[in-house]
Nucleic acid binder design. Structure first.
Lengths: 253, 253
DNA sequence: CGTAGCTTTGAAGATTTTCAACCTTAGTGG
DNA sequence: CCACTAAGGTTGAAAATCTTCAAAGCTACG
């Protein structure tokens, strides 16, 4: 009983191997459990820019953890165009939407050379039914993804182009920071077009906004390199755009 | 072993009591399991139009199953406005996004007199770690919610007002049908404003679109009563709006 | 019957998209 | 080493869609 809960440090070490920080950091796992979790993780070869992690329609076997690099997930329009539905940074898990159908409902492609780990879901499920805290952690993980999507949804249905881009940049910044990178300076691994697709804007609109934010002294933009100069100002734009265009209902009571 | 898997019929009967068709129908549960599942469900009193199921910030204890009626979930803007993030029909489960934070991240209010069941999540989790198929079903449930959100996200970032409304109506229609109601004729329990908020459109735009779809012979609209007259045409609008405004990327390979 | 709330409709205004041209960067091959 | 090309990015002007503001109509409910 005394050593039932392993220290965070030990978990971190164990997880450094499996890149499962996301999964196992906040749990109380025994060393034994960690070992078993570690045993089911497969490290895949590094993927090159443009390679697919999985494609829409592929049978579902694994969840994937982004170890390094960036992954975009997207759906295809009937006319062959891509609709970006997410960008995924190191430590994030993708493929969660496929559990339901046993088929991947979108495609995932790496935006730069990336390392991706595989998590065979059947094994994970088995393990979860033995390790209660792992089960709980998985529920939380799925729930978190739902929260993220809901937030994004709320963003897209409410806001102006400016608010969308500001929110997008702050979100990216936060995620970089959580992963131990600089909060106010980072590289965009995606193109203006991909950002536009994700935010529901034309690529020209994205470009113009970058220019404007730079003119206003809020950002420094140099192609894909972004520096946030005035974070507070950016945060204001993210909440209330210049001319507040309100699609919200006034409370009815 | 012979009677390990209970028949669908028996499950249906058991579930009629607890409105858990969504949860237990596709599973292989023993009669014993069903009983245990049934035992943790609490039937709440009927809620009146405008009552809250839960509010943003409430501590998370239960998931909720809509038994009859309609529920809207929404977040509040700083300025007091409401941003609708979902409409929920009988058989659907709400509160899934709160697992992660132990707090509800949005509010839920019924749009008409509704019956809502409570599912204490702690109990559900305990049960899931004993019943493997229940665990699996819960994972699927959460995954499905993610898929739904992703689809919605894809819709909002891509499309024109017309495409959004057409998709919205087809989605509602499908969900009505799945629940055994008429597919081409139903009542909207939400206002134009709420639809607009959900779809990211001004309420006037929604109203105008209803008028136009009626003029085109695609719908019959009479306040909240909707009849779909030309489903195929509506489906075309949902995929490719009149003047295809494309925020999609052309595939780069 | 009258008021309150929702819906419809019109016209003006704003934001965003589209089309088009041009610029920049990086990579390739002569 | 330089010119050339392709891809991505920027910028401008016109066009379209959607929102906003305003007013009037309809329904329901007390």
């Amino acid at each position: 009983m005394a050593s039932r809960i392993v220290s965070f440090e030990k978990i971190k070490v164990a997880c450094k191997n499996c890149t499962l920080a996301t999964l196992c950091l906040p749990m109380g796992l025994t060393p034994d459990d960690v070992e078993r979790l570690d045993a089911i993780v497969k490290r895949s070869r590094p993927l090159q820019k443009g390679d697919h992690v999985f494609r829409n329609g592929d049978p579902f076997h694994n969840l994937y953890v982004v170890k390094t690099g960036t992954v975009k997930t997207y759906t295809e329009s009937p006319d062959g165009g891509e609709q970006v539905v997410g960008f995924h940074l190191p430590g994030e898990i993708i493929g969660l939407d496929a559990i339901q159908t046993d088929q991947h409902g979108c495609s995932a492609r790496v935006l730069e050379t990336s390392a991706i780990c595989e998590l065979p879901f059947d094994n994970l499920e088995d393990l979860a039914s033995h390790i209660h805290s792992l089960q709980h952690q998985l529920f939380r993980l799925l729930s978190k993804e739902i929260s993220r999507d809901t937030e994004m949804l709320s963003l897209l249905s409410k806001s102006t182009a400016e608010e969308r881009l500001a929110t997008f940049l702050l979100d990216l910044s936060k995620r970089h920071q959580q992963r131990g990178f600089a909060a106010n300076e980072f590289f965009l691994s995606m193109s203006r077009q991909e950002i536009g697709s994700y935010l529901g804007l034309a690529l020209e609109t994205v470009s113009r906004l970058f220019t404007r934010l730079q003119e206003d002294g809020i950002l420094r933009v140099e192609r894909k390199h972004i520096e946030i100069l005035d974070r507070d100002h950016l945060a204001v734009l993210a909440i209330k755009p210049a001319g507040s265009r309100a699609n919200t209902c006034q409370a009815s009571d």
